[in-house]
């Protein structure tokens, strides 16, 4: 009997590996979760798009639940996401702020003029420094930040309608309580 058990060992090991491989089929190896979730959002102070001389400080947002959407005019997936952002801007609970990442003012303004501006305000990050602090590696990325300034959720890649209504909106409502 013990001989049979021993000779079953390779099969058992194989099935363990298969289990992981099966799970792996439904995971995305490219998606890297942020270590910043659950940590205070890095503070920044950046120029505001289209308003020369005006600055936005993320400290102003203390006490509010807000979303920071990192985007750029050169990013294709952002265009895909844009209509969802426009929808979001109509939801009263959501405070959507933009961070224009490694872009030029003119091109960014162009996009917002033609496709509509879903943001309460867009801060600019032309040299990508704020992006590095936030661990941005592929735009669009969206951070959900709570009243005390802690990042509660990070979406890598475009926000879909489904995600908005099943995940983000409920979280926002929960955090606002």
């Amino acid at each position: 009997m013990s001989k049979l058990v021993k000779s079953l060992l390779p099969l058992a090991l194989f099935f363990i590996v298969v289990g992981f491989l099966f799970k792996g089929l439904y995971l995305d190896p490219h998606e890297v979760p942020s270590p910043l979730v659950g940590k205070p959002a890095p503070l920044f102070n950046a120029p505001v798009l289209a308003e020369t001389g005006k600055k936005f400080s993320s400290e102003e947002m203390k006490g509010k639940v807000w979303l920071l959407n990192v985007w750029a005019s050169w990013c294709g997936a952002c265009r895909e996401e844009h209509p969802v952002l426009m929808d979001m801007s109509k939801i009263s609970e959501i405070q959507l702020y933009g961070l224009d990442y490694k872009d030029t003012d003119a091109e960014a303004q162009d996009v917002l003029k033609t496709a509509g501006n879903p943001y309460k305000l867009v801060a600019t990050d032309m040299d990508g420094r704020i992006g590095i602090d936030y661990g941005v590696y592929g735009v669009p990325e969206t951070y959900l930040i709570d009243k005390s300034g802690v990042i509660r959720y990070k979406q890598i890649g475009p926000i879909t309608k489904e995600l908005l209504y099943t995940k983000i909106l409920p979280m926002v409502k929960e955090l606002q309580r």
Partner: peptide, 21 residues
């Protein structure tokens, strides 16, 4: 392919387990 692996490798190792003792 995973299914194929299960059939081919799983089958082979099962046969092995039965015959090896």
């Amino acid at each position: 392919i995973l299914l194929y692996l299960v059939v081919v490798i799983g089958g082979a190792l099962l046969l092995f387990a039965l015959r090896a003792p």
